[in-house]
Amino acid sequence: MININQLSFAYKKQPPLFQQISIEETAGKIIGLLGKNGAGKTSLLHLISGLLTPASGEISVLNHYPPKRNPNFLNQVYYVPEEFFFPNLTMEAYTNAFAPFYPTFSREKMNHLMTGFDLQPKLNLNRISLGQKKKFRIAFGLATNCPLIILDEPTNGLDIPSKGIFRKLLASSLSENQMAIISTHQVKDIETLIDKILLIDKGKIVFNSYISTISDKYEFRVTPTSLEESVYSEFSVAGYKNIVLGTGNPTEIDLELLFNAVINGANLN
């Protein structure tokens, strides 16, 4: 579904943001795109969706070259940005206006998602809170049934119950022939949702692994003192958080710890 080969990119008059990165991803998974602020998560998503053109290298998404912005490509990709613009319409009118562009859009699913997010179709999009706008946008995106759904910081602005609903609805809405990429720096929000982690730092993909692989390979333990055998450890209020090689007793993955470990140079690949 996504094939990126030796891609480099730089904004005008800026040092290179990406240098020869390569990614190959197939459908049927939820990918967590993680990275520090300014690491280039949104830029990578813009490259995938064709909003930016690479300086060099190859990129193919759904067998299209994204910067060409072919409508037959655009109607297969739905991008929920971090900040968005809504015309002066009700949710219902917005759905009527935009849904015809997506051949796989399901009104039934939209109604189900609107109910799930507790959204009122008659409300004007410019008179609702940021959280409600985001929920509507996520609902619309999922209802398009696009093969590729991109969510940039989807949990920003959502209250705690809505974050739970978001996780539940996203997990139940995607089929095997779809892929979702969730970009966030709030790793806790998507911990239970993602199948794969893609971590970018300083213009490079520094970590790319399935959750199941990490779970098989490593264990995450909190101990009063730092463990000698730990691959990475850091102090927290609860004690020392350690990543140790797996001993056959799988533990829950601490994404925050994993993130810090990779960013701080621990070799987990």
Binding site: R69, P71, Y79, E83
Partner: peptide, 21 residues
Amino acid sequence: PFLRSKEGTFEYSMLPATSFE
């Protein structure tokens, strides 16, 4: 009118239609 803001430009660019249309 969509081009008056960065967010609007984004929406307009992602709309599945060609630039000519």
